[in-house]
């Protein structure tokens, strides 16, 4: 399954090199591209959470948008209420989301397939309403998570033309790389092997002394930590959280991204993230080409995304990876 086995240290070095290269590259791209780059990083983390959950532990969630909402609200709440610096606020969002994910994971480990899909779907529909019930969570208006201008040390380092979007890109890229690095290490550890064993044959894994149920709860918890991190970053990019910022379509979009990435392939989350950001962009261009009608502009992205999803499920079940796909065919 894994062709390249890098040591944790070399993975860290690789992440560092990629990170520095990306941050340097942000100096040469426009504002829009930087913002979209930050979006890619956020989707990447969210997609990785689904890949870990589905590809490695065999569970499905259509409610990870709700867990992203928990992370986003946790971060924004600690930011506005206790004036936490945004770095700590992000971590606080992750903490809240992890606790929520653990509670959900204990229940989820007992459910399978469509039952789990439907329960998490109901969560995604139901959870945002909590925000309306508590004054603390800001109701319809939501909560502010505007982190303001880039700090002084960055401006001193990069010059006064350092924009907010570039700062967003930096934060999201660094956080995403750290998260990806940590998750890759985790998946290559005994935890990752146990999850895969439990997914492939739970009876055999149990006989081999692996506690499959415990592994599922842990996988759901770690996946929720990632999703809430993505949610907190998502809120940071928006500058606020509202009940409508995390719709059902967000849950569907990240599952779509994971399928396009290939659900068993963590590195593919980059492909998934790029596609999720690129499709609206490309359909926007197509819409202009087709005469800019309201009907087309509102529905073309969904049409392209759904068609791509169906084609991938039917014809490229390993995701958008031509090389890997061929090799898998040869060995069987």
């Amino acid at each position: 399954m894994h062709s390249r086995h890098l040591s944790p240290l070399s993975r860290a070095l690789l992440s560092l090199v990629v990170g520095v290269a990306l941050l340097a590259a942000s100096g040469f791209t426009g504002e829009l591209r930087n913002y979209q780059g930050a979006q890619v990083a956020v989707y990447l983390v969210a997609i990785a959470s689904i890949i870990l959950l589905t590809g490695y532990s065999g569970q499905i969630s259509l409610g990870h948008g709700a867990i992203m909402a928990i992370g986003g609200y946790g971060a924004a709440l600690s930011f506005t209420l206790w004036n936490f610096p945004f770095e700590i606020a992000l971590l606080f969002g992750v903490l809240v989301g992890t606790v929520g994910g653990f509670i959900l994971g204990v229940a989820a480990a007992r459910l399978s397939g469509p039952y789990l899909a439907g329960t998490t779907l109901a969560l995604a529909v139901g959870l945002p309403s909590i925000a309306d019930q508590f004054h603390l969570l800001g109701g319809e208006q939501g909560l502010n998570f505007d982190i303001g201008d880039p700090p002084r040390w960055v401006v001193r380092l990069e010059g006064s033309d350092f924009t907010q979007y570039k700062w967003f890109f930096w934060i999201a890229t660094v956080v995403a790389l750290i998260a990806l690095w940590a998750i890759t290490n985790l998946l290559h550890s005994s935890y990752g092997r146990n999850w895969r064993a439990g997914r492939n044959n739970s009876v055999a894994a149990g006989l081999a002394g692996i506690n499959v149920a415990k592994g599922k709860v842990l996988a759901f918890t770690v996946s929720s930590a990632l999703a809430s991190l993505a949610g907190a970053l998502f809120a940071l990019l928006l500058g606020l959280v509202t009940p409508t910022a995390f719709p059902l379509s967000l849950s569907f979009a990240i599952v779509t991204g994971a399928v396009l990435a290939g659900v068993g392939n963590l590195a593919g989350s980059i492909v998934g993230g790029v596609v999720l950001v690129a499709i609206p962009e490309i359909s926007g261009a197509l819409t202009t080409h087709l005469g800019d009608s309201q009907k087309v502009s509102a529905n073309l992205p969904g049409l392209v995304m759904s068609a791509l999803l169906i084609l991938v499920v039917l014809f490229m079940p390993n995701g958008l990876r031509i090389r890997k796909f061929k090799r898998a065919k040869k060995t069987t």
Binding site: T256, V259, G302, L303, S306, L309, I310, V313, L314
Partner: peptide, 8 residues
């Protein structure tokens, strides 16, 4: 996934 795709 496939039926969700069909829904979309």
């Amino acid at each position: 996934i496939a039926t969700l795709g069909l829904l979309g």
